[in-house]
C-alpha cells in the first residue's frame, strides 16, 4: 500500500501490523541526541525546529553524501533508545515513527492512545534504502554531526507496520508463527 505524509487519522486507522507500505512525501530524521533536544525544547516552551502534527520521524543518522548524491547510506537505527521521549511526541501530534526493533509497553500504549503507527525498515540495508531518498537537508542541530535533525523527501520508502492502533505487533506475530518449542 502506498501512503503519503502527513498521515491522516484515516490512513493510520487503515494500517495493520505486518502490512507493507511505501511511504512518499516529507519525513523528518532524528535519533538519540536530537530527541533529547526536541523534548527539552518542548519542556521549556521553546519553538520547535520541526512540525509534529501528522508527521513521521525516522530514527536514523545518515552516512555523508558522496558528491552528486542526496544522502549516503540511510538505514534505521534501533528504536527503543527513543522510547523515553516518544509518548511526549505522540501527545504533541506525531503520527508515525520509522526505526527497527521492539518498543516499550509505554510506547505501544501511547501508539494506541494517540492513534499513531510504528514502522520498521530493514536494518543494515542503508545503501538500498538511500535510493528512495530524493532530497535531504539538515534543518537543525548541525553541531550533533551524525545526530543532526534532517528533513527528507522520500519516494516509495519501503517499511513494514510493526505496531498499529489496535495493539497489533508484527514482531510478536512473527515469533508466534515461527517459534519451535524445545
Amino acid at each position: 500500500m502506498k501512503i503519503h505524509t502527513p498521515l491522516t487519522d484515516d490512513v493510520v486507522a487503515s494500517l495493520r501490523a505486518g502490512q507493507k507500505v511505501l511511504i512518499s512525501g516529507t519525513i523528518y530524521v532524528a535519533r538519540d541526541a536530537a530527541h533529547k533536544r526536541i523534548v527539552e525544547a518542548m519542556g521549556a516552551g521553546a519553538p520547535l525546529p520541526l512540525e509534529l502534527q501528522g508527521q513521521i520521524i525516522y530514527y536514523m543518522g545518515p552516512a555523508p553524501a558522496k558528491p552528486g548524491q542526496p544522502i549516503g547510506s540511510a538505514g534505521p537505527t534501533t528504536s527503543y533508545r527513543m522510547d523515553p521521549y516518544t509518548p511526549r511526541l505522540l501527545a504533541a501530534g506525531l503520527k508515525g515513527m520509522i526505526g527497527k526493533g521492539n518498543r516499550s509497553q509505554a510506547v505501544k500504549d501511547a501508539i494506541r492512545q494517540y492513534r499513531a503507527v510504528y514502522f520498521a525498515s530493514t536494518g543494515g540495508a542503508g545503501a538500498l534504502i538511500a535510493k528512495s531518498v530524493k532530497k535531504a537537508e539538515v534543518i537543525a542541530y548541525e553541531d550533533l554531526g551524525a545526530e543532526a535533525l534532517w528533513k527528507l523527501e522520500v519516494e516509495d520508502f519501503p517499511a513494514t507496520v510493526i505496531n498499529d492502533i489496535y495493539g497489533g505487533d508484527a514482531y510478536e506475530d512473527g515469533v508466534r508463527q515461527y517459534a519451535i518449542p524445545d
Binding site: 549516503g72 538505514g75 542503508g126 545503501a127
Partner: peptide, 17 residues
Amino acid sequence: ENARIAREDEMPLCQDC
C-alpha cells in the same frame, strides 16, 4: 541487493559505519 549496491557504488553497507 544492499551488498551489491554498496560494492558497486563504493558506499557504506550500513549508515552505522
